[in-house]
Each structure stands twice: as C-alpha cells, then as structure tokens.
C-alpha cells in the first residue's frame, strides 16, 4: 500500500494565456488531514478539480491513491469523495432520494443500501428530515447531507472544497470533530479553506499564492519559519506575511 495518498510533481494548469496553477509539487500522506490554503483565485479550486479528475492538467505528473492523473481518472473517481464549496445536490429531492441516487451512481450493491442509508442518517443527524425537500433545510444541514453523500461509497480519500463557508461556528466544530473521526478510520482528508483557525485542525498544510506554493509543513512550523522574530504570531499573521512577500 502506498503511504502517499496524493503525489503531484510540476503540475500546471493554464486557461488560455492565464496560468492558474504554476508548477506545484507536493504530496499528501495517507490518513492525514491536509490543508490547502490561499487567497481567492490562488488556484485552490483548480488544483482540487485536477486531483478529482474534473479537469485535465496542462502538464506535470501525479498520482491519486496510486492511480495516474492523466490516464486513470475513472478509477480515481470511484475511490474519492468530493464536496464542493457550492451545495451541489438536488434541492427538489429529499435527503433520502439524494442518498439513494448517489448510492446508485457509485454502484454501491443494492443489498447494502439500507445499512448505508442508516449509517449516513446517523452520522449526519438528518434522520428527522429524511423525507423533507432538501431545499427547505438550513445551509448547515445541507452541508451535512453533502458530506454524507460524498462518503456513501466509503472513499479512501475525501476532497473538501471550502466545506465550512457560510456555516455557523457550532456546526463547524461538529464538522471538524467528524472529520477527525474519519481519519481514525483511515480516510485521508484534503481540505481547502481560508479560515486560519480551521487550518489549525490540519496535520500539514500548503499555502499557495498566484498558482505557486509559498509555504509547506505543519502549521506551527510554518509560523516559526515565516516569522522567527515574533513568538506570539499565529497562522493568520504568517499567512498575511507570506501573501505580501509574493508582491513587489
């Protein structure tokens, strides 16, 4: 078994003349929570979309769960879960119908559907609204449903694209407790965020700016390296310092 869930080398994505992701190289260890930080437009979503097989990289090389990014995107898709920053389940279906739909799409064997459904409802605490239209649920509840649907087929790697934007602090705390629990079961979590306090939950992080990696390592380590003369600085201070450095 490969101990690296994700490994990319010199990955580039260009849209026309614009280079969204510019030669990035990093790896994600199995079972860790890996944070991907950067300001808006830094290339976070583009990177996550390349790793999920939604868009094809312009150049470079990479593996996700041992499958090649360029040639084995179908196998990657079967083994990963993905939750986008924008809610992307069906608002006119009920949670139960949404779950059933994705059980079918991931070809989870139908005889285990009932068990999976019970597991999801328990994990996401949505049992009481299983037959209500999803559109009537508050944002935090929808987010839980989206997370549940992304886990139906027991993915080994979970991609979360700004999972907690627009969610209240209490729900966010629950969310991170749940994510921590998932990693105990061996799931690797790849998360993008621009909440610095959330980045503290990550085992390791990468910071990118204008498509390039500007820092990599454990959160505390990054703060120490970036601002050695300010012992009380936090990750937010380091982030600001790093983003400024990139500009003339």
């Amino acid at each position: 078994m490969n101990s690296e869930a994700v490994a990319v080398r010199d990955l580039v994505k260009r849209f026309g003349t614009f280079t969204a992701v510019d030669h990035i190289t990093f790896s994600v260890r199995s079972g860790e929570i890996f944070g991907f930080l950067g300001p808006n437009g830094a290339g976070k979503s583009t990177t996550i979309r390349m790793l999920c097989g939604i868009i094809i990289p312009t150049s470079g090389s990479g593996h996700v769960l041992g499958f090649d990014l360029f040639t084995e995107s179908e196998r990657i898709k079967q083994s990963i879960g993905y939750m986008s920053q924008k809610f992307s389940l069906y608002l006119d279906l009920t949670p139960k119908e949404n779950i059933r739909f994705y059980l079918g799409i991931y070809r989870v064997p139908p005889d285990s559907w009932d068990a999976r459904m019970e597991w999801v409802f328990k994990a996401t605490r949505l049992e009481s609204v299983r037959d209500r239209p999803t559109g009537e649920l508050p944002p935090g509840w929808r987010q839980r449903l989206a997370l549940g649907c992304a886990l139906l087929h027991r993915p080994r790697l979970l991609f979360l694209d700004e999972p907690t934007s627009g969610v209240d602090p209490l729900t966010r705390r629950h969310f991170w407790a749940f994510i921590r629990e998932l990693t105990r079961e061996g799931v690797t979590v790849f998360v993008t965020t621009h909440y610095m306090d959330e980045a503290q939950h990550c085992d390791r992080i990468v910071m990118i700016n204008a498509g390039q990696i500007v820092a990599m390592g454990q959160p505390a380590e990054i703060v120490r390296k970036t601002l050695p003369d300010r012992p009380r600085a936090d990750l937010g201070d380091a982030f600001v310092a790093l983003m400024r450095k990139g500009r003339p």
Binding site: I54, K77, Y82, S84, K86, S88, Y90, Y102, I105
Partner: peptide
C-alpha cells in the same frame, strides 16, 4: 445551472 452537474462529474458516471 444548479451546480449539480459538477457533483456528477466527480463520480465515475460515464
């Protein structure tokens, strides 16, 4: 328009 296509694209759906 609803963004649900994006979720379908990350599944192995052909």
């Amino acid at each position: 328009e609803a963004g649900t296509m994006e979720q379908l694209i990350v599944t192995p759906l052909k």
